[in-house]
Design a binder for these strands. Structure first.
Length: 525
RNA sequence: GAUUGCGUAGCUCAGCCGGUAGAGCAAGCGGCUUUUAACCGCUAGGUCCUGGGUUCGAAUCCCAGCGCAAUCACCA
């Protein structure tokens, strides 16, 4: 049991500052003076602000205005009001009190719409409420959709009602909320203050949906495999550790679903995919969050080129849908920061060793030259590192930079030594049938021809474990059951992985992964 | 984990060559039936991130810590 907090060292639950006090005073006033319940009730028949705006009828508006003008000359003249009516709900974003006329804007996820409240058109209590509203309050309003003299489309309120009093001081109405720290910590404020934030997450939802539908259209079956695993396999990342109390067992949050999805192919599922969270206990930067969403897909009797065609079509298809370009067309060019990324098919393809040779001027198999270059350029562990690990160090240092960031590029045929789950090429066993897709300098995902020979797989695992240092070996364990599943027999297969967050970053022009994750990990405070 | 930068009113920011804090918006009071960052008058609003140090005096200079950002490292 923790010590119970004492009143003295417990921070106040909210800022008791003057801004909050003023709102609390209004809250009390609403109840006592106006008899208004500040936390609302069910409201039926709501339409989106954007829909209300577009329901504006020019002819009906003109007829109404004309009949009102006529009544000025002759009060007995009939009112011609055929204006459409609408009921909307939203957050007060602007508020102007002109005495006997009050204007405010309501913002919902579809946009902003002005509500105009004339003292003549509503009850006294409603009018006083309209005058008292604060930025951030949640309000519903109902009335005819018309226009003001200044041409602003609005709802001329017949009634308005408070749905929730906002007690928190809102961000400024002009600059909104810009501080990235508060935007991430208080996403709920960011979302109403910066409508483009909501747009990004709507796009994210749509992109994920497009990916799912694409996969389903190609007969892949969506599955869910364990997020808590007794052995964290399928990638070489540091896992998060947790514990099951009743069973007294250590569990890891998964770093990848790979080894489970492959078991499904052993079981007879031909095409599977999973879109879900992976957890990696690593650093945080613009393209890494400790929990991130990935898709993995496997196709029995395919290979890495099956996956290449699939991923190329998938990315192209989704980019097309996001850009709104015709399906049969060339394909879109979408901005990402300073880049204009050209998603036209076919994507670039370049062999790993070719890129290496272009960057260094010698063959990656030339151990002497590789080691000499590494020594000369002071690559860490140049003397002790295995040749192929060194090759990959050099590749990442200099060759990846040669990839055109404005063109999606498949780098094909990685060294086998750095690809333990990949089938080596039959003619050149030092090469693995694996590619990585790069866009805008980011690794979007790899694909393999999956290794289905249990003896080679076991040898690779064992070798990998032998090379692990003390820290690694605390969480790396041989997944014997996975090897056993390969002994049962896994069909030859192609498999792929893709970072969904990074794909969303690219397609929404968001340069930080935190802008595409609703609640990115933050240090407490 | 390292380096650099930033942290001042609810928000967006100025002040930072040391002399005890300012603007716009937001807030409060008053006025206005067509506003568009409404306008006009008045008022109030701050542990200058935290803790030390230097100094007669620190938002300002120095040190440490915390948070955020960028870059790097880690991420087969």
């Amino acid at each position: 049991m923790n010590a119970s907090p004492t009143p003295n060292d417990t921070p106040a639950p909210e800022d008791p500052g003057a801004l909050v006090a003023a709102r609390r005073a209004k809250l009390a006033d609403l109840r006592t003076t106006l008899g208004v319940e500040p936390y609302g009730r069910r409201v039926d028949g709501l339409v989106a602000a954007a829909a209300a705006r577009s329901s504006f009828d020019e002819a009906a508006h003109a007829a109404y205005e004309a009949s009102q003008a006529a009544r000025k000359a002759d009060p007995a003249a009939p009112v011609d009001d055929r204006r459409p009516r609408a009921r909307i709900a939203g957050r007060v974003m602007q508020h102007r009190d002109l005495g006997k006329l009050v204007f405010f804007w309501l913002r919902d996820s579809s946009g902003d719409l002005q509500v105009s409240v004339s003292k003549a058109n509503v009850s006294e209590a409603e009018f006083q409420l309209a005058k008292m509203l604060d930025y951030g309050d949640l309000v519903t309003a109902e009335g005819p959709v018309g226009r003001t003299n200044k041409g602003e489309t609005c709802i001329w309120a017949s009634s308005c009602e408070l749905s929730a009093k906002s007690l928190a001081p809102p961000p400024g109405k002009w600059h909104g909320l810009e501080d990235p720290e508060i935007r991430y910590r208080k996403r709920y404020v960011d979302m109403y203050s910066n409508p483009e934030t909501v747009r990004v997450f709507e796009q994210r939802s749509r992109i994920v949906s497009l990916v799912r539908r694409f996969m389903e259209s190609r007969s892949y079956l969506e599955v869910e495999t364990p997020m808590m695993q007794p052995i964290a396999g399928g990638a070489a990342a540091r896992p998060f550790v947790t514990k099951h109390n009743a069973l007294g067992m250590q569990l890891f949050l998964r770093i990848a679903p790979e080894l489970y999805l492959k078991r499904l192919m052993v079981g007879g599922m031909r095409q599977v995919f999973e879109i879900n969270r992976n957890f990696r206990n690593e650093g945080v930067d613009r393209s890494h969050n400790p929990e991130f969403t990935a898709m993995e897909a496997y196709q029995a009797f395919g290979d890495y080129m099956t996956m290449l065609e699939m991923v190329e079509s998938l990315v192209h298809h989704v980019a097309c849908a996001v850009a709104g370009c015709p399906e049969g067309g060339d394909g879109p060019v979408l901005p990402f920061g300073q880049l204009q990324i050209d998603y036209r098919k076919p994507f670039e393809r370049v062999r790993y060793e070719e890129l290496f040779a272009r960057a260094f001027g010698f063959d990656m198999r030339d151990e002497a030259k590789v080691r000499a270059w590494a020594k000369e350029h002071h690559v860490e562990k140049a003397a002790t590192l295995d040749h192929w690990l060194l090759v990959n160090e050099l590749f990442e240092e200099k060759a990846e930079a040669l990839i055109d960031p404005a063109r999606p590029t498949f780098v094909l045929d990685y060294p086998s030594a750095i690809s333990p789950l990949t089938r080596p090429n039959r003619k050149q066993p030092e090469i693995a049938e694996r590619w990585d897709l790069f866009i805008a300098g980011m690794e979007i995902g790899p694909a393999y021809t999956e290794l289905n020979d249990p003896d080679i797989q076991l040898a690779k695992f064992t070798e990998q474990l032998a090379g692990a240092d003390d820290e690694e070996s605390t969480f790396r364990t041989l997944d014997e059951d996975f090897v056993e599943s390969l002994r049962v027999g896994m069909p030859p297969a192609g498999g792929m992985g893709m970072g969904i967050d990074r794909l969303v970053m690219l397609l929404t022009n968001s340069e930080s992964i935190r802008d595409v994750i609703l609640f990115p990990l933050m240090r407490p405070q």
